[in-house]
């Protein structure tokens, strides 16, 4: 059992005329086996939360705490966080020219496990996971994210989640830019990981459509850098009907 505990998290970014506060006190606990959906309008700070948890240098934590099983996540480097069991599926995965997918996956797996994977089972695992995500085997010899379509990038992110087996995974708008078929394939991948591990999921999304495929246990509405309302899956249905307007209208 793992627990990611976010408490009173305030995060700023540097802008031209000083610093701008984006997260204004986020409290959230994600446990193994739970699926949390974070929904909210553009600019509400959803992605900032994702990148702050992963440790992107652009985001500066000004107060609050984040712990994973009691360990101080904010004190860890980016790679230490990943090795501790955090995973971020990125909205805009980065191209790494000249580094093949297969080399990248093996290097990451070796780093996460602290030893290189056994060759025979590893090759089988990679092939199996790629087949499940309807990825052509020759994909493994392409350079990381170079020339990938939007759908290929997202499938590649989920492929990594399947192979790296994180304790807590944050999916940052994994559904954006996907057509219905790709969304279904990606969602199946996420559900496979849920079914075969006790991963805790933090699903960040603008739209409700991915929640038709991945059922959340909790829904949090994110507005202006903090959680404005929380509920069960029924809250997502209500958002689908009403949109975010009622959160944006000044009281």
């Amino acid at each position: 059992m793992s627990t990611l505990e976010i408490s009173g998290l305030h995060v700023s970014v540097e802008v031209e005329d000083g610093s701008k506060e984006i997260l204004r006190g986020v409290d959230l606990t994600v446990r193994s086996g739970e699926t949390h959906a974070i929904m909210g309008p553009n600019g509400s700070g959803k992605s900032t939360l994702a990148y702050s948890l992963a440790g992107h240098p652009r985001y500066r934590v000004t107060s609050g705490s984040v712990t994973l099983d009691g360990e101080d996540v904010l004190a860890m480097s980016v790679d230490e966080r990943a090795r501790a069991g955090l995973f971020l599926a990125m909205q805009y995965p980065v191209e790494v020219p000249g580094v093949t997918v297969s080399n990248f996956l093996r290097t990451a797996k070796t780093a996460i496990d602290g030893q290189s994977p056994k060759l025979r089972t590893w090759v089988k695992d990679v092939k199996g996971a790629m087949a499940n995500l309807r990825m052509d085997p020759e994909f493994a010899e392409r350079n990381v994210n170079e020339g990938f379509s939007g759908g290929e990038k997202k499938r590649h992110e989920i492929l990594q989640m399947e192979l790296l087996r994180p304790k807590i995974a944050i999916l940052d708008e994994t559904d954006s830019g996907l057509d219905v078929d790709a969304l279904r394939i990606v969602s199946e991948g996420v559900n496979r990981v849920k079914a075969t591990s006790d991963v805790g999921l933090l699903l960040i999304t603008h739209y409700t459509r991915i929640l038709r495929y991945i059922t959340p246990d909790f829904v949090h509405v994110f507005v202006d850098g903090r959680i404005a309302e929380e509920g069960g899956p029924e809250l997502a249905d209500r958002l689908e009907d009403e949109g975010y307007d009622r959160f944006l209208t000044p009281a």
């Binding site: 790679d79 990943a82 790494v96 990451a108 996460i112 990381v144």
Partner: peptide, 9 residues
Amino acid sequence: FYLQARGIP
């Protein structure tokens, strides 16, 4: 960042 976020030192 991308590579480190996958645990690579």
